[in-house]
Every structure is written in structure tokens, then in C-alpha cells.
């Protein structure tokens, strides 16, 4: 009898695991909430505030998808994942969507069997130096001592960059962000290098931020974006187009404040009408309400608003738009037509 129980359990588990990858949308609707994997804490990108409410740039993606699918931006179970647990959490079905500043790479997309639905932040590796060093470009860093986290891609990028530019450097290996801070502030190294978004967010926490400057060079590509499991293209489409809706909203001037007004009746711009559901049946094509994009925008604002609220120049993190500006303003954020 024990054997049959065991076998039955295994069979059930197998079936259920197979079922998890079939129709994520139905699962989410049945559950009434979205399971969204986020970081355990990165300033500006994902962190709970003093009241325990999750806030941040990546968190907004989760809320936008929840608003589009369920009509409620609060219907999200935030499941915090570390760098080590994030991929298994997604692959095993514990989360429906992973929005955890994850770099889009070939092997993650193919070998690990995930689908990156877009790039919500174009990051890249940069350098921070004390202004007292009198350096204004990374090409002047020949012979510098550089604090670098061991065992990361940043270490390899750094070696490549210095070899290509025929310069030498002395690495100071460090393990964690906290250690980097101590070493760099104590002057154990001239330069600290990691992703520019991280540099910007740690710079503001230094005792005197104005004494440090981030150099303009970006020496690597780190496209960060939300991802879903392979094999459920319908769900992937929903997340992808929810994200594009936020970008398109910025392009067409739809904001959190005016979205209700613009969605009340069809306006002059047919693209906006289709986006906000006053014209056409785009929502039905992806299995959602026709007001899905309006709900998402009303919940979190358009891409530009999300950016400036969480990590933009007015926020404590203080990042420039740079590559993350709309393509009309010289950046890379580009939404395909809603048609």
C-alpha cells in the first residue's frame, strides 16, 4: 500500500509540474494574484519600505502585469529571490514572472529555457573615482589600483577593456558591496568598478558624494529585463506587451494622471485609442480585458514616470536616462506598433 501511495504522489507531482508550464494565465487568474520574483533588495529597483510595501523599478513591472491581468496592482505576491535561487524559482513554477535585474544572455535565454520579454533597463559596467584623482576618462586609468568583485562578469569585462586599450591595472579583489565601500572610501583602491546603476546608488550613500565622480565610459552590455518560462508564449506575450504599453504610453504622452481622461472616449490618435482600448479589440487577442493597458498605466504610470519616480534624477538614486531614453530622444526604448 505504501508503494502505491508513493507512486501516486510522484505521479501527481509530475502531472502538476507539467501543468504549471501549460497556462500560466489561467493559473494566475484562478489564484487571483501574481507570483512575482524580485530581488531581496537593490536600492531603487526592488526593496520594501518602512511599511513593508515593495517599491522600485522592477517592482513596478510586477504591479503593471498584475493590473493588466487582474485589474489590481496590489494582487501581487512578491517572492524575493537571491542570485542563487532566482532561476530555480522561475523554472519550478514558484513564480510566474521574474523581474529581478537579470542580465539577458544567450545561455540564460536558450540553455536555461527562459524567455526574456524585453529590456527594462540598459545597464553597463562603469567606473567611479574620487574627484581628487583628477581623472575625467577611463582611458586615463593606466596603472590604477581597481577594486573589483571576484568571480563576476565585471572582472572579465575589466580585463578585456584594459587589454584592448593597452593599459595595465592592479586589481584589489573584494567579495561584497560592503567590503568594496570600505576599501574604496579608505583609499585602498583608486577606482571601483561595477554596474553603473549600482555605482550611482552607492555614490549617494557615501559621506560626501560630491567628492566622487562616475566616469562616462560604459565598458560592457548589461541588458536587464523581466523573464518568463519557455513554453508558454501566451503568457510571455502578455508580459511583453504590458511592458511595451508602458513605453508606448510615454511616447504618446499618456500618464498616470491623464490616462483615465484619455481612455474615457476615443481621441485623435488611433494608436492611443487602440492602446487604451477605446478602439479595436487588442485586449481580447491576448486574453485580457480591453482596458488592460489602461489599468497598467493607471497603476504605475508610463515608463518615464516609473523611471523618474524610482531611479531617475529626482530620486535618491539619481540615474540619467541615457540609453534608457525613448528612441525619439536618442535612447533604445522602443515599443512596436499597437495594431
Amino acid at each position: 500500500m505504501k508503494n502505491s501511495v508513493l507512486l501516486g504522489t510522484l505521479a501527481f507531482a509530475g502531472l502538476a509540474a507539467a501543468g504549471a508550464s501549460a497556462a500560466t494565465l489561467d493559473d494566475v487568474k484562478a489564484r487571483g494574484s501574481l507570483n512575482c520574483g524580485v530581488n531581496t533588495g537593490v536600492p531603487g529597483f526592488a526593496a520594501p519600505d518602512a511599511n513593508g510595501e515593495w517599491q522600485g523599478f522592477d517592482v513596478s513591472v510586477c504591479r503593471a502585469v498584475a493590473a493588466a491581468v487582474l485589474g489590481d496592482p496590489e494582487a501581487v505576491n512578491f517572492i524575493s529571490t537571491t542570485g542563487k535561487t532566482r532561476f530555480t524559482a522561475l523554472a519550478s513554477g514558484e513564480v510566474d514572472l521574474l523581474a529581478r535585474n537579470t542580465t539577458w544572455t544567450f545561455s540564460r535565454d536558450t540553455d536555461l529555457k527562459f524567455d526574456f520579454v524585453g529590456v527594462n533597463y540598459y545597464d553597463g559596467q562603469g567606473f567611479i573615482v574620487p574627484t581628487a584623482l583628477g581623472v575625467s576618462s577611463a582611458t586615463e586609468l593606466d596603472g590604477a589600483t581597481i577594486c573589483i568583485q571576484t568571480g563576476t562578469t565585471t572582472e572579465l569585462n575589466l580585463a578585456d577593456y584594459f587589454r584592448v586599450n593597452d593599459m595595465s591595472y592592479e586589481p584589489v579583489p573584494i567579495e561584497t558591496e560592503a567590503e568594496a565601500r570600505t576599501q574604496f572610501l579608505a583609499g585602498a583602491c583608486d577606482v571601483y568598478t561595477t554596474d553603473r546603476s549600482a555605482l550611482a546608488s552607492v555614490r549617494v550613500t557615501y559621506p560626501s558624494p560630491d567628492d566622487y565622480v562616475i566616469l562616462p565610459e560604459v565598458i560592457s552590455k548589461e541588458p536587464l529585463g523581466p523573464l518568463v518560462r519557455h513554453g508558454d508564449s501566451e503568457w510571455g506575450d502578455i508580459v511583453r506587451w504590458t511592458y511595451f504599453a508602458l513605453v508606448a504610453a510615454e511616447q504618446y504622452g499618456v500618464t498616470q494622471d491623464n490616462v483615465e481622461e484619455m481612455a474615457a472616449e476615443a481621441g485623435d490618435n488611433p494608436e492611443v485609442n487602440r492602446l487604451l482600448g477605446t478602439e479595436g479589440e487588442l485586449g481580447a487577442m491576448i486574453g485580457l480585458e480591453n482596458s488592460w493597458a489602461k489599468d497598467a498605466i493607471a497603476a504605475v504610470g508610463n515608463y518615464g514616470e516609473i523611471f523618474s519616480r524610482n531611479i531617475g534624477e529626482d530620486s535618491p538614486v539619481g540615474l540619467e536616462r541615457g540609453l534608457n531614453a525613448l528612441y525619439t530622444e536618442g535612447g533604445l526604448q522602443y515599443a512596436p506598433p499597437f495594431r
Partner: peptide, 22 residues
């Protein structure tokens, strides 16, 4: 494994909040 015990709270949410980072 991303449970927020005392150390997890310090390393994650508190040090990642814009008010208390650093």
C-alpha cells in the same frame, strides 16, 4: 535562501532602502 531573518532583513530590505543604504 531569501528568507528574511534578522540577517536577511539587514542585508536585503534595510540596506537596500534608499534611506538607509550604506
Amino acid at each position: 535562501i531569501s528568507m528574511f531573518d534578522l540577517v536577511g532583513m539587514i542585508r536585503g530590505p534595510i540596506l537596500a532602502s534608499t534611506a538607509w543604504a550604506g
